[in-house]
Nucleic acid binder design. Sequence first.
DNA 1: GATGCGATTCACT
DNA 2: GTGAATCGCATCG
Length: 202
Amino acid sequence: MTYPWLTAPASEVATTTAGLLGWEITAGGVRIRLTELEAYSGLGEDPASHAHRGPTGRNEVMFGPPGHLYAYFIYGAHWCLNVVLGEPGRAAAALLRAGQVIDGLDTARARRPAARNDADLARGPAKLVTALGLSGTANGTSAVDGTGPALLTPPSRPPAAADIASGPRVGVASAHDVPWRFWLRDDPTVSPYRRHTPRTRR
DNA sequence: GATGCGATTCACT
DNA sequence: GTGAATCGCATCG
């Protein structure tokens, strides 16, 4: 299976990321339509990216072939998922921030007992991963050839250009001026914007 | 080898 | 609105 965005260069990660809005990801019996994504680059280009300082054991997948999944563990409690973009050797990825559950609703509800309503099932990066039943075992697997636990598929109806909004990324400690967050305007499953909040105490 | 904090979420006030 | 939970990695010694 091949898609145009698989061959897009890493330098166009923002455009490529926006183009993934409305795509659907299926895993663990749940299908989710992506409504919110963020672009991340690497190697001196993007201080907010895990790949900014070069390859490490954790982020090496970002430097690998596009279409694979980069899963990382954050705050000692949550998994977040990226789709790797751009040519191998360059770090680029799209963070899956939120989506709308369109299939396997009962399964998703069972995995997300804290969700108050269906719009909250995947409204946030770690929530989305939980709803799909994924975790770190998905790291490094392909999301486009069916060999991994998750599969990305094209939108049944691509979103209109006028419905795509962009702005600063959520929760990042730097690069507040880079509008690399993309979401579908007025969609209830898009997570609320939050500035990075420095931790107090300990 | 030790320390500090992060691309977050949830429970509680 | 605020604070806790909790693991791995980057950084420093």
